[in-house]
């Protein structure tokens, strides 16, 4: 990645610089999570997570079921109240930078039989910018159509959402995030149960976002495709096991620590 190569030496021997010696670069981190702990009924779901993500990075969040991946995203987005720790995006608390952040929840988190159209769902991505009471108008419609075009769904604009396939539903959710025009994206399992065409389309979209300098965190289930699709990875199992460039963190040892006894599974992923 570019940010590692850009580690040009700077004569900054002050205290701040020493603290940041871990970082090969001086660009401020887009996402800065410190000591994040989340508990449900006293049982820790996430334990003391630290994570710094520089800009323009495509990061996979991987870990076994129940590792707290979804909770991690939700805690960053303020949907789950952390027991301890802090989250900063662009150096600010999330509520101050909402307009720069987009979220793609798990496809299964909503009722797709809800009486509404594809265009309507995508337009919801603009509700935050519209603010209270104001209704979406022609401008919003155009923006939503453009976002649908980006995911190859423009001809589905007036379709009832119940008529969509799993892959199409996922694309609609992606379009809703795109219309938010953010620079940080959080996606929860966008590849879950989608067809090969959609998977390819999503990968292309992710790469396009990275090329435009966006930062994208993706909860991902398929270890095999991590090295191919992503340049960074966070290995999570309640605790942070490892985080960084995929080639550095995707070791057999780390994967065994993340996935416990299922070593053969982990080994297969390393070889892949």
């Amino acid at each position: 990645m570019a940010w590692a190569a850009r580690s040009n030496p700077r004569p900054l021997p002050n205290k701040d610089a020493i603290e940041m010696t871990e970082q090969p670069d001086m660009t401020p981190d887009v996402i800065d999570v410190r000591d994040l702990t989340v508990a449900y009924r006293e049982k820790p779901v996430l334990w003391d997570i630290d994570l710094r993500v520089p800009s323009g990075v495509l990061m996979a969040v991987v870990g076994p079921n129940g590792a707290g991946k979804t909770t991690f995203l939700k805690a960053i987005l303020g949907l789950v109240r952390p027991a301890a720790g802090s989250v900063r995006i662009h150096g600010e608390p999330y509520r101050r930078v909402r307009s720069r952040v987009a979220y793609v929840p798990q496809r299964g988190s909503v009722d797709w039989d809800f009486p509404t159209s594809v265009l309507d769902v995508v337009t919801m991505g603009l509700y935050g910018r519209l603010g209270w009471i104001r209704r979406p108008g022609r401008r919003e419609r155009e923006l939503a159509l453009r976002a649908l075009d980006q995911v190859g769904m423009e001809s589905f604009a007036d379709r009832q959402i119940a008529q969509l396939s799993g892959g199409q539903q996922q694309r609609v959710f992606l379009a809703r995030a795109l219309v938010q025009d953010a620079d940080v994206y959080f996606m929860d399992e966008p590849f879950q149960g989608v067809d090969a065409t959609t998977e390819k389309a999503i990968v292309e979209l992710l790469q396009e976002l990275r090329e435009r300098g966006k930062t994208v965190l993706v909860v991902h289930h398929d270890l095999q495709t991590v090295p191919e699709y992503f340049d960074h990875a966070l290995l999570l199992n309640v605790r942070r096991i490892a985080a960084g460039r995929v080639e550095d963190v995707f070791t057999e040892e780390n994967l065994r620590l993340t996935y416990g006894g299922r070593v053969s599974f982990a080994r297969a992923a390393v070889k892949a």
């Binding site: 303020g78 909402r98 509404t116 919801m124 509700y127 809703r176």
Partner: peptide
């Protein structure tokens, strides 16, 4: 339709 998404938008 999607209360969580509404939450991330600041509602």
């Amino acid at each position: 339709f999607d209360a969580e998404f509404a939450g991330t938008l600041g509602f």
